[in-house]
Amino acid sequence: MALPYKGGGRFNPRFNRQPEPEHRINDRIRVPQVRLVGDNVTVGIYPADEARRIAREQELDLVEISPNADPPVCKVIDYKKFLYEKKRKEKDMKANAKQSEVKEIRFTPGTDDHDFNFKAKHAEGFLKDGNKVKAYVQFKGRAIMFKERGELVLLKFAERLAEFGIPESLPKLEGKRMQLMLTPKGAKKKPKEAAE
């Protein structure tokens, strides 16, 4: 009686390979000599075997931190603790680097005062939070004949938010949309934008 087929086939090393560590450590360091640094070690050039022995005596790892130096620089540290602290620092840096967004505010040529004030209040909040504001007037059908009204709406909007944001340029008409970008006050302008 034939046994059911259970997969098999040839062994594929790609699927069983361990991910390469970020740094070469301990026995993976295959150079004749290294420049040794770290706490509780005498800084200097040592044979790799001697450097590994020093790390083992301190119950720490020998980690290659600068492989392109001549000879490579290795540090005696607790590698797992080093990786943990490195990840934590990266996470903290990401959390502190607030992402600036572009918020859009849409008007029509006939936007009334109540709607205008409501939208300007929202834009004020966005600018205070450090986000850019892209205000635009959308022209539908024959409303394009009133592009001056659209420009007035955007200029009035920029004037209303002058305390919180700086226009990057004058309102521009692109297709059936006239737009104006406001940068929060205190944000640095690029030289190109400053020249406009």
Rank of each mutant, 00 (worst) to 15 (best):
A97P: 00
G44F: 03
V63P: 05
D78R: 12
H114A: 12
R56L: 11
M178T: 01
Q138R: 13
E196Q: 13
R106T: 11
G130S: 01
K94L: 10
R149Q: 11
E104F: 12
F126L: 01
K87V: 05
R88L: 11
Y46I: 01
E50A: 14
A51H: 06
P67M: 12
I54F: 06
E174R: 15
A95N: 08
G141P: 01
A69M: 09
D61H: 15
P171E: 09
I65E: 10
E151H: 07
R10S: 11
D78I: 05
F11L: 11
K6V: 11
L173K: 08
R30S: 09
G130K: 02
L154G: 03
V73W: 02
E193Q: 14
K6I: 12
K140W: 05
G130P: 03
T108E: 15
K81H: 10
M93F: 13
K80L: 08
A120M: 05
T183C: 02
P47D: 15
D92Q: 14
R88C: 04
P167T: 04
N68T: 15
E159F: 03
A48R: 14
F118M: 12
E196G: 14
L182H: 08
D70N: 14
D70L: 10
A135L: 00
F118T: 11
F139G: 00
V153D: 03
R24W: 15
K176Y: 15
H23C: 06
Y136W: 08
K86Y: 08
K75H: 08
H122M: 11
V37C: 01
P4M: 06
L154S: 02
E50F: 10
R28F: 07
I54G: 00
L3Q: 13
F11I: 13
K121F: 07
D39T: 05
I54N: 02
I45M: 02
D78W: 07
H23A: 08
M1A: 15
E104I: 10
R24I: 01
K87G: 04
G186P: 04
P71T: 02
P167M: 06
A187F: 09
G130T: 01
P67L: 08
G9T: 04
K185H: 04
P167Q: 06
Q179P: 00
A143H: 04
V37R: 12
K94V: 06
R88I: 06
R149W: 07
T42H: 12
N131M: 01
A69Y: 10
R106H: 10
G38R: 08
D113R: 15
V34T: 07
L62F: 05
G38M: 02
G130H: 05
V43L: 03
K91H: 10
R142D: 12
G9V: 05
K128C: 00
L36A: 02
R56D: 12
R142E: 10
R30H: 06
K192D: 10
F118H: 14
G125H: 09
C74P: 04
G44D: 04
P191Q: 05
G186I: 03
